[in-house]
């Protein structure tokens, strides 16, 4: 369990990024963090693994204040994948790159190889194991960076914009892999602008604006809140727009609709009742 208690953070004493963030992430949760550019999302997840330390407030990992833990210690529990894959790739093959993290954490050669193969296969990278990461496309490099952290299966996984540059097929693969890891009890936190990805994969959503949490609850509830949509500068989900259009004709359609199945059910209900 990760708890952020009234966390404040100001860059260089000038630019305020977080002003009083309180958040509890339970074990086994799937949580999405949304918000406009500059809302403080990345700053917040950097607090989760100790790269940034709160200037006010506390970050508590499994009941222990992270103030007394080094980043390397926290990294065993909390994995973080950054936006830009080029910031972490430095070895001359995809294979070595993925094994690097595993060996850092202390897996044996055998285990490391197994995990590496499994992760590469799940992310559709199995054919690229011997290639140099620098010859890959942007989307492929992004997946190698993801693989290098996902393969270690930390108990908490924080991903910053993991779907950027990925086609629908790859996004589904990633979603599937995250779902499997979640089923094995891992906690997944994702920062993203990709609303469809959130709706389909994350039951809980936290919305941020100007360094504060403006909404925290079920994805359904948060994303059908107009104020959230406005302040996070999101385009309303297609499903919400569709539901509103239908509500103009059939007032019995609910306010909070984000899933295709819900809409189907409602329409079937109306048609069946007619």
């Amino acid at each position: 369990m990760i708890i952020l208690e009234d966390v404040h953070y100001t860059y260089d004493g000038i630019y305020t990024a977080l002003q009083g963030i309180s958040l509890q992430v339970d074990d086994g949760e799937r949580l999405a963090v949304i918000g406009a550019n500059g809302a403080g999302k990345t700053t917040m997840i950097k607090h989760m693994n100790g790269l940034l330390r709160p200037q006010e407030g506390r970050v508590i990992l499994d009941g222990q204040d992270t103030k007394f833990m080094s980043v390397a210690e926290i990294a065993r529990e909390v994995g973080l994948v950054f936006q830009n894959p080029d910031h972490q790739l430095f070895l001359d093959s995809v294979k070595k790159e993925v094994e690097f993290g595993l060996r850092n954490i202390g897996f044996t050669e055998n285990e490391a190889e197994q995990r590496r193969q499994k992760t590469l296969a799940s992310l559709g990278l199995e054919g690229l194991a011997e290639r140099s990461p620098f010859t890959l496309s942007g989307g492929e490099r992004k997946r190698v960076a993801l693989a290098s952290v996902l393969s270690t299966e930390p108990r908490f996984l924080a991903l910053d914009e993991p779907t950027i540059g990925q086609d629908a097929h790859q996004k589904n693969r990633l979603a599937q892999m995250l779902a499997e890891m979640n089923k094995r009890g891992r906690t997944v936190v994702v920062v993203t602008h990709d609303i469809e990805f959130v709706i389909e994969n994350f039951p809980r959503t936290v919305a941020m604006a100007e360094g504060q949490i403006i909404a925290d609850g079920s994805t359904n509830m948060v994303l059908s809140n107009d104020e959230v949509i406005e302040r996070c500068s999101l385009a309303p989900p297609q499903m919400t727009l569709a539901a509103r259009a239908i509500r103009n004709v059939f007032p019995e359609v609910g306010q909070r609709l984000t899933l295709l199945s819900e809409l189907e059910e409602t329409i079937m209900g109306i048609l069946g009742g007619a």
């Binding site: 980043v71 973080l80 950054f82």
Partner: peptide, 15 residues
């Protein structure tokens, strides 16, 4: 950029 890279590597357990 150097700071961002240091962060990314520390997050992977590089001490």
């Amino acid at each position: 950029e150097a700071y961002a890279i240091m962060d990314a590597q520390r997050a992977r357990g590089v001490e």
